Amino acid sequence: MVSIATWNINSVRLRLPIVERFLKEEAPDVLCLQEIKCQEHQFPAQALADAGYKYQAIHGQKGYHGVATISRIPLKEFSRHDWQANGEARHVGVELLGPGKGMVLENVYVPAGGDEPDREKNAKFGQKLDFLGRMIGWADKIDRPTMIVGDFNIAPLESDVWNHKQLLKVVSHTPVEVDTLEQFKQAHGWVDLGREFIRDPERYFSWWSYRSKDWKVNDRGRRLDHMWASPELAAQAIGHRLREDARDWEKPSDHIPLITEFAL
């Protein structure tokens, strides 16, 4: 069995204690982190190696964004795509070399897209759609078993948000974003693993705003984090779960970790 986890950690140095807690409690084989918010030389590589995760692929930048994949099993860096087309560190791909050998694991942090869902009024929204457009072109050419995980910053289904009607004009759940993400899905025939195991319309959120004073009572969540796989790889998935309790840990991220297990 191979277990893969993903988590937008919102500053890995600030939240290193809860990363270490998660690794101790869940012991995934691989953890993909987004929004590490540090340069590669600032990444807590030794602390995570001491926790058993000595295989690492880090793509960082100063203060913002950044992704890292850490593993207990051997891997090698496979790719770095600049889907933002401006040099931002938002992707790193690895190939597993131990258990799960040959599997490609892509770790991505899709731009949030700003506040106004109009590319004419908000350049960030246009950048988000263009980012996804480049991902679509890439996905169309994939020729091997691949998994893509991370913060997609889109909640595609009505049941992926706390209130579908209220969020239709809110960035992350607008029809144009949902349609573009569906184009990405179709470009490779991706299987949405989360919704294979937690079936629509069952409640499934991965993010709650810091602005909500009591996130559990209000429960205004959205499913922004995803784990998708090529059909042949998805067929080997045997479990999927999320650690919603992590949203209550000390100095929590606004996202929670997701874990998928494969019988590889």
Rank of each mutant, 00 (worst) to 15 (best):
A27T: 11
M103C: 11
L193R: 06
P74T: 08
P257A: 03
E116V: 14
L105E: 03
V2W: 06
S3A: 07
V161Q: 02
I36L: 02
L193W: 09
D29I: 07
T69W: 00
V110E: 09
A27M: 09
F184S: 08
A139D: 11
D225Y: 12
D82V: 04
R220W: 14
W83C: 05
V2H: 04
D245R: 01
D248F: 04
F184W: 15
F205E: 11
Q166R: 14
W7N: 01
L96S: 01
F78K: 13
I238A: 07
H164P: 07
D115A: 15
Q236D: 12
E20H: 06
R134H: 12
D219H: 14
I136C: 10
S230E: 07
E244S: 12
L181N: 11
M103I: 15
G126S: 09
G93I: 03
S3T: 12
P44V: 02
W162F: 15
N8R: 06
R211Y: 14
E244Y: 06
H81G: 15
V161W: 02
N218F: 14
C38Q: 08
S11W: 02
H65A: 15
V149M: 07
I73M: 06
Q236Y: 06
I9A: 07
W190C: 05
P28F: 03
D245L: 00
S206M: 12
V12R: 06
V178M: 03
S3F: 02
P117M: 04
D143S: 15
D254V: 10
A5L: 01
Y64G: 04
D160Q: 13
G126H: 07
E20R: 11
N163H: 13
V191Q: 14
E177F: 02
L264G: 12
V217K: 15
L242A: 08
R199K: 14
Q39S: 12
D82N: 07
H91P: 01
A51L: 13
W249L: 00
D82M: 07
P252D: 04
L224A: 07
G98R: 06
V30G: 01
E196H: 08
E202Y: 08
I256A: 03
Q127D: 14
N8Y: 12
S253E: 09
Y64F: 13
V171G: 00
V67M: 03
A234S: 04
D140L: 13
E202G: 03
K165R: 14
P17F: 00
E95Y: 06
A237Q: 07
E77R: 13
S253Q: 08
K169V: 00
A85M: 08
E244F: 08
